[in-house]
Design a protein around this nucleic acid. Structure first.
Length: 390
DNA sequence: TGCATCCTCCGTGGAAAGTG
DNA sequence: CACTTTCCACGGAGGATGCA
């Protein structure tokens, strides 16, 4: 990395991927009036390390056109990624940036002149380098707007990543294994170790009991009595297998110390295809990294159910998705901050919602998720219309 | 130093397909 | 039909870097 930095004469963000470094190099070598076509994952425009390069592309008027491919699986069937082609020209002219959305292979065949084939035009002001570009470009295609009055979710609390054990194989246990190892109940805690363990949007102690009965891995080693022989034996076994030398465990002291987390009342699936996985958690189970957990602050404390209703509603899902990261093939991912920066109704708007209606939806959600979503849609629509009429 | 955040590579459950 | 093998959608995991 230092060598590359020296060669291109620029300090790089440590997360930079190879493609972006090649892009910098290519842009530097572009002659006056030279042209460049560059293919790379579109995700680049949503990354932190991409910001500086976006700045260069915009400020030096290099970027002329972005061609985005929605049919990435047709083009690179083996890769889970997004695709775009950048067309650049070093002509110093401030021109609009053309956006081309390719949807099918046939469409590609029919194009005779790509420069004249575009669906939108953006000025350089519309593409700020510090912002993610996916939401900006998506907003051209789907006219989803953030409703008036909405505030950021971080007003009410924060989403945090779940527990990263550093070695789930070792830490995640099921009932029979615990019994076999003769580990005391005090040295394990209830954990949701895999996303698919929760199938329904409401997660209760009954569901948790069922998982225990099914002997699923819903416990996590949480050493409280380090003098217990059973614990000592199991830790030794772990060390024999080298789990204490993994990246995360190696940097912890002791290596088996668990990250601290309280049970989160709302869980949010890290990876999603299609609908976002939002769970109202009524158990004391804590979550592994498969879910992000919501931790309310004083303001959000009484709004958890309402927030949940919003998050399962169609509108809530659309608005939260504006901050998604795409990994191709409809696979979306969210980091905690993507969620915290998402928009939701403000306090006043939430207050319009009757708590009774909310309780009713939660009750119904246990039996009929679809109906609960429809009811949520209705409630959320009401508060938005209300804001407009005022 | 210890935790949070960013990024991306790939492990695996469960079902389909194959086999005797 | 019962068992084994293969396959891939789904989403999990954790290494690397940044930050307080």
């Amino acid at each position: 990395m230092p060598k590359i930095e020296q060669q291109i004469g620029k300090k790089l963000v440590g997360y930079s991927n190879i493609a972006s470094i090649f892009l910098i190099k290519a842009l530097q070598q572009l002659n006056s009036n030279g042209r460049l076509a560059f293919i790379l994952p579109f995700e680049f425009f949503n990354t932190g390390y991409g910001k500086e390069i976006k700045k260069t592309l915009i400020e030096k008027h290099l970027l002329k056109q972005i061609i985005i491919f929605a049919n990435e699986k047709d083009i690179f069937p083996d890769a889970t990624t997004t695709i775009c082609i950048l067309l650049c020209e070093n002509n110093q002219l401030q021109q609009d940036i053309k956006i081309t959305n390719i949807k099918t292979t046939q469409e590609i065949k029919d194009i005779s002149n790509i420069s004249n084939y575009y669906h939108h035009k953006l000025t350089n002001i519309q593409l700020p380098h510090q912002q993610k570009w996916t939401p900006i470009i998506l907003s051209l295609i789907s006219p989803q707007k953030i409703p008036e009055g909405f505030c950021q979710l971080s007003e009410y609390g924060t989403f945090k990543r779940g527990i990263a054990t550093g070695a789930n194989d070792f830490f995640a246990l099921n009932k029979s294994r615990i019994e076999q190892l003769e580990i005391n109940d005090k040295n394990v805690c209830l954990c949701i170790t895999k996303s698919h363990l929760i199938k329904q949007t409401i997660f209760t102690d009954d569901d948790l009991d069922l998982l225990i009965k099914q002997d699923k891995r819903i416990y996590c080693l949480d050493v409280k009595e380090s003098n217990s022989q059973a614990v000592i034996n199991y830790l030794k076994l772990g060390e024999e297998k080298g789990y204490h030398q993994r990246y995360l465990t190696k940097n912890r002291n002791p290596w088996y110390k668990l990250e601290k987390r309280e049970p989160a009342p709302i869980l949010f699936g890290v990876f999603n295809r299609g609908r976002l996985k939002v769970i109202r958690n009524f158990t004391t189970g804590i979550n592994f990294t498969c879910y992000h957990g919501f931790y309310a602050n004083l303001l959000g404390h009484n709004l958890i159910d309402k927030l949940f209703i919003y998050l399962i509603s169609d509108l809530g899902q659309e608005i939260i998705k504006m901050n998604k990261r795409s990994y191709g093939n409809q696979l979306d991912k969210f980091e905690p901050r993507d969620l915290n920066n998402g928009y939701c109704p403000n306090m006043k708007q939430f207050n319009y919602i009757n708590q009774k209606d909310v309780n009713k939806i939660i009750k119904i959600a246990k039996i009929d998720e679809k109906k609960a979503i429809l009811m949520s849609n209705h409630l959320i629509k009401q508060i938005i219309n209300r804001e407009i009429t005022k």
